[in-house]
Design a protein around this nucleic acid. Sequence first.
DNA 1: TGGGATTACATGGAATATCATGGAAATATT
DNA 2: AATATTTCCATGATATTCCATGTAATCCCA
Lengths: 154, 154
Amino acid sequence: MALFLSTHTNKIDKKGRVSVPARFRSILTERGYGAIVLFPSFEGNAINACDMGVMEGLLERIGGFDPFSEDRESDADVLMAEATELPIDGDGRIIIPLTMLEQLGIEGECIFAGRGDSFQIWRPADFEDRMKAVKERARLKRSSGGSLGGANNE
Amino acid sequence: MALFLSTHTNKIDKKGRVSVPARFRSILTERGYGAIVLFPSFEGNAINACDMGVMEGLLERIGGFDPFSEDRESDADVLMAEATELPIDGDGRIIIPLTMLEQLGIEGECIFAGRGDSFQIWRPADFEDRMKAVKERARLKRSSGGSLGGANNE
DNA sequence: TGGGATTACATGGAATATCATGGAAATATT
DNA sequence: AATATTTCCATGATATTCCATGTAATCCCA
């Protein structure tokens, strides 16, 4: 399956519209989706983006609606409440909810960063910072004999 | 299947009418329903909302009517007794029973919060509180190796 | 392998449609 | 008849669709 790779910087116009990178769009289409789902990253410094299939899988894992069960993860509920499904318009654009943009201080442009099976949206300055940090961490790990350091998480 | 995602804040007019978010309506229509079922949440601080199909599935899991069985949970009976089916009018609105609104102290406006296969209706202030609380809990859990496997990892 | 032609893409603005919401009219209830 | 409930209509705000354009990438053929 095709993966979301590379990073792209696109502009956000005054109506809040942003072009989803063409390559990302084609991957979504390939998977059968014409919309993307956004939700805040756990750390709160980026937006996670995936397709509806990922959300459905998540719901399946936490179990369906059961009003008597206490064990349904309440953080999963928050996730569902904070997530939004955005249709991709005829020109390949989405409108990122203002609340998300404000939360991250995104203005004017943003970065789409591939993550393999999903991707993230960043404020350019924050993304650079993070890249630096991750590279530095990888360098340290390498000198102490790590294995393929950043391949999985973060 | 489309999921109920995101949160919407809508006004309740003096006649008690509230617009069901258009996206939620379209999902219900997609599933073949023109009405929604409401009943108090277990914790009592929100209203659960779903379609009749979900209620039927719920009943099935609980166990249908059996005059010789005592083991059917009385909770289930209460649930069915407290539930009401509300038609969605031509403009996409419902009228939430006054008793429910009073119980929750809802006045003027309410929040529709997606939960995947269902959604909830909240008093805005209570919803915010809950979001904060759950996020905090998730943060703590995470620092000590929480669940929800990489789905919400940064 | 240049370099011109063509296409794909991101972006801006304008036209159009949808949505939430308030009030009035019509219908039902008692 | 009086009141409550439901249906219908109007409207401002918001979101979506449509079209135009500059630019960058790709193609193509001499």
